[in-house]
Design a binder for these strands. Structure first.
Lengths: 185, 185
DNA sequence: GCCATATAGTCAACACATTGACTAAACTTG
DNA sequence: CAAGTTTAGTCAATGTGTTGACTATATGGC
């Protein structure tokens, strides 16, 4: 963020032309300048969500790097669901991971062919198939998630416990509110 | 979250079997139960990032709904970059929006055919093309972002100013740290 | 029991994004 | 200035997601 050149003779420009801006510092640049073009803008809200979005993207990208070529993050999510709630129908996996039925269908088929999950027709409901993590699936999940979680811990440790608590509380409140508001509409 | 049936005769189960869990409440369920299978787990870190991830996904999905069929969120990002920093090379758009050059190339071509941006060969550098938002592009961006930002404000207003400030500060610190750590490796 | 309706999973069509190879235009360094 | 290297943009291949149509099975009212 050293603004090297491109300063007016009278000192640093008040409205930099964005030459030194990068992905992350664009948040700041936008917050300072966007109000000029868009007087209706709620700058605080825009800056808040842009910060959330970009910071989160950077951090999650870093954490995801731990998975490397082992498995996709969607696969990890599915396996974590299966290992914590136990064997579940495809629909349930879709709901708990947040993906569509079609995506879950495709993913679980891939995971089956990799030997990480088993798919059995349900005894209770002829339409359902019950998916379960195989022993190999459990091992793969364990190994991948171990490194993934270690990297989560690496970042989490860089927050004050109080900061982390505040963030969790605030986001939980909003998330609960989303579900509630959605339910009404 | 009413746990209707499936309670042991002696009262609510201490370790629910997950029958009533949904996408959001899975965070809680996971935090309470995953440690059993994975004793090495940093539960706080896992819960923190799962909360962040899922809450953010829910909220962003809601906000994105304001764009509806008007434009993709990638298109909005690109147009916001172009309208705030002004005409830029394709590479610069890619950097500031966080997409790959190939993705930017495809997106900007689409936007050009929709009449929202113009693409001119650069006078300075024969390899570059300079992209600018057209008047129609500025209008489309303005209209779409107005509603988008209103929805951002809707959620932002549901946070204490102090909570929002804490979150911004904490995430900014981590994001800066990501760039720094990445630069070293 | 039968028929209308809803639900679980799959499939096909489409929408993007990523990676890596490729082309053309810059630089760089003797 | 010529040869090698880097850089900007594009293209093709691939991966993975969504939506909506479709099939087979359940369910509920009569």
């Amino acid at each position: 963020m050293t603004s090297s050149h491109r300063e007016s003779p009278t000192g640093p420009a008040e409205t930099p032309d964005g030459a030194d801006v990068d992905y992350w510092s664009f948040v700041d640049y936008f917050a300072k300048n966007a109000g000029r073009n868009m007087p209706w803008l709620d700058t605080d809200a825009a800056e808040f969500f842009m910060t959330l979005h970009r910071a989160f993207e950077l951090i999650v990208y870093d954490i995801r790097g731990e998975l490397d070529q082992r498995m996709s993050s969607a696969a990890l999510r599915a396996l974590l669901v299966l290992t914590t709630v136990g064997p579940s129908t495809l629909l349930r996996v879709a709901e708990l991971t947040g993906m569509s039925r079609a995506a879950a269908s495709a993913l679980l088929k891939r995971l089956e062919s990799d030997g990480l999950v088993s798919r059995q027709p349900s005894a209770d409901d002829g339409r359902s198939i019950v998916v379960a993590a195989t022993p190999e699936g459990k091992v793969a999940c364990d190994e991948a998630y171990r490194d993934y979680n270690a990297r989560e811990a690496f970042w989490h440790d860089r927050l004050d416990p109080e900061e982390a608590e505040t963030m969790k509380r605030a986001l939980s409140r909003l998330a609960a509110s989303v579900s509630e508001i959605r339910r009404r509409s």
